[in-house]
Design a protein around this nucleic acid. Structure first.
Lengths: 202, 202
DNA sequence: TCAAAACGTTAACAAAAGATAAGAAAAGCC
DNA sequence: GGCTTTTCTTATCTTTTGTTAACGTTTTGA
């Protein structure tokens, strides 16, 4: 756990400003509750069976979320720089996580631990804005999940893959294809077939 | 739109107290922002293409959420008494909804419209608790969606159906089976086959 | 640098799900 | 009550996906 640099703080502040705008006095108190940590590739940010005590903001790098089912890893989500990383349910409830979060690349992540989060929620100077921040973040991810569930119900795997391509996110290049297959809810073999179908439509 | 009865208010207050506890002065102001409305069976609470301006709490009855894809209805979710009803994304963003919400039975629903919600979020007397309420509600549904996405990634339709049965919710009896099939992400025909497989495992 | 591990594709076969249609039972509606 | 609509099941056929294994390539790490 290092101290945060000014550049790291600026990056974080710029990203969260649309959600919550701290004045200078608030900001100074807020950043006292932050830590930063480096993760090597394949190092775990959270693990199934253990409580996830951190809420993370990825300054650089990326992570994947996965579950282990019958000994096989199933990758369910990815987060990249300027996005959040947390086994949200575990962080919120204090119950052991059911998934793993692992660095896909060497990553630098700002951390807020459960104790500091509670301290801010109970600090009259920050409480209101932290509640609001928490609401907007939760609502944001809720809407993302809502879209994802809808896509599972109304789209074929091929449609989901095409839509994913259309987002044009270059971050996709950084993800092994069998993880993307998991993300889409199919096997790597099946995704390979879909890709072939798309390239040479008969 | 009727005035709320004391019994209705009590039911609502009991249900939301775990999320937010209003004192008497706050409660009196809060309930001034509530309305109540009755929905006939099959009447719509929200419709695709129209902005959902209401956030609902179901006092009695039930609703289903559905999309129309290629002319076919796909039911994605249900809500019952003491649960919420809203085309959440539309309510939050003000954009037209992409799904329909329809009463499955004659239903009575408490409504908070967008204007009243904003008024409370901007009323210093209520703002803090409304932000907190909103945060906890969003977090609750976020966790539900997270579980649901995980189930799509890691379970077969048969496993999802068995797990649904194991919840033992008698509300399932109130839902036509082909809606449950949609909810599980499969066709009604496929669910019928799964049921047969379960009853007479060869 | 070199062996091991990870990755993507392809093939062959099995299992499951989708599409469509038909028919029976149940529910809803004048 | 009698008619229509909805609901569920079943059968047949097609399509898709899963499973397993093989193979070549790329990446990784000691």
């Amino acid at each position: 756990m290092d101290a945060l640099t000014q550049a790291q703080l600026n990056q974080f502040r710029e990203r969260i400003t649309p959600y919550v705008t701290f004045n200078e006095a608030e900001w100074i108190v807020f950043i006292q509750h932050l830590q930063v940590s480096h993760y090597k590739k394949k190092q775990h940010f959270a693990e199934a069976g253990k409580v996830c005590n951190y809420f993370g903001f990825i300054l650089s790098g990326s992570v994947r979320y996965y579950n282990i089912i019958d000994g096989n890893e199933i990758t369910g989500y990815f987060s990249f720089e300027n996005e959040l990383a947390s086994s949200y349910k575990s962080f919120l409830t204090g119950e052991p996580a059911i998934n793993y979060i692992q660095a896909l690349e060497p990553s630098t992540i700002i951390l807020i631990n459960r104790k500091n989060m509670d301290a801010m929620l109970n600090n009259p100077m920050l409480a209101y804005k932290m509640e609001r921040f928490g609401r907007l973040v939760a609502e944001h991810y809720l809407m993302c999940y809502e879209d994802r569930v809808t896509s599972f119900l109304t789209e074929t795997p091929e449609e989901r893959y095409l839509k994913l391509l259309q987002t044009g996110k270059d971050v996709l290049q950084r993800i092994p294809q069998h993880y993307i297959a998991n993300f889409l809810g199919i096997t790597p073999v099946s995704l390979s077939r879909i890709r072939k179908r798309i390239l040479s439509p008969s």
